Simulated scan of single mutants.
Amino acid sequence: MTMVGDGDVHGAQPPKVLVLAMDPRLAMDPAPAVPAKRQHKRVIGLAGHFAEEGARVDVVTAEPDGWAGLDERVRLHRLDRAEARHPLPWLEHTFVIRAPRVAVRPVARAGRLGARLERARSRGSRAVHRRLFVPFYRHVRPHVLARIARRRVLREIDTGGLVRVIVMDRTSVPLGRRLARLHPDLVVTTRQERSLDAKP
């Protein structure tokens, strides 16, 4: 496995690039319905380019799949497991899905009436999830992920030498803004120029 070096004999450190791709399906592009697979390819290609240029590259995402083609020199930080343990999704799953399932289980196998009760329970849980929780969580999720990333990922990434933060999707915007406020001299951009010297 090829690794980015720790610096040359003069002690110079390679530049660092942070790519924020929390949810590649929600790309920054105004064009609608861009396939998620194409968005993953954009992230993978961009990260691979900077790694090829000698930069240390970190990609932060909440998407568990689609990263098989990522350059092995790039560090991938996945937030999906930490997100699943966050109180909001955990409580929703517990009270909307798990608790009703446990409550209905004793009678769910008791003939026709039990089967009807189980179907009603399933429909009700799905309706609450889709119509209430999903629209609500869609609005708060970027902030939830930003907080998780600040606590779990940014501690692992030394911001010294970080020259560019590239925000690839709308879900990543709150974390990008936070980094821009904390580090006013840092280039935080949604533009995907493959240059470490490109302006924001």
Score class of each variant (00 low, 15 high):
R123L: 09
A180T: 03
K199P: 02
T94P: 01
G11Q: 06
A120Y: 08
T2N: 11
F136V: 15
R38H: 05
K199S: 05
A198H: 06
P15H: 01
D65I: 00
F136D: 02
D197G: 06
R38Y: 02
P24S: 07
T189A: 04
L113H: 07
A12F: 04
L179Q: 04
V153Y: 09
P100W: 03
A27Y: 00
V128D: 02
R25T: 05
H40M: 11
A198Y: 04
G160N: 14
R98I: 14
H183S: 03
V163R: 15
L20H: 03
P15E: 05
R112L: 15
R109T: 03
D6C: 12
P89N: 13
V140G: 05
R56A: 02
V59E: 06
P24Y: 03
A21M: 02
R150N: 07
R73F: 02
R73P: 02
K41R: 14
R194P: 01
D29E: 11
V17F: 00
L20T: 07
P32K: 13
Q13H: 07
P89T: 14
G160R: 15
E72A: 07
W67N: 06
A55F: 05
P32R: 14
R116K: 10
I157S: 13
A110C: 12
G7S: 02
R38W: 00
L113K: 11
A55V: 01
E72T: 10
G5H: 12
R138C: 01
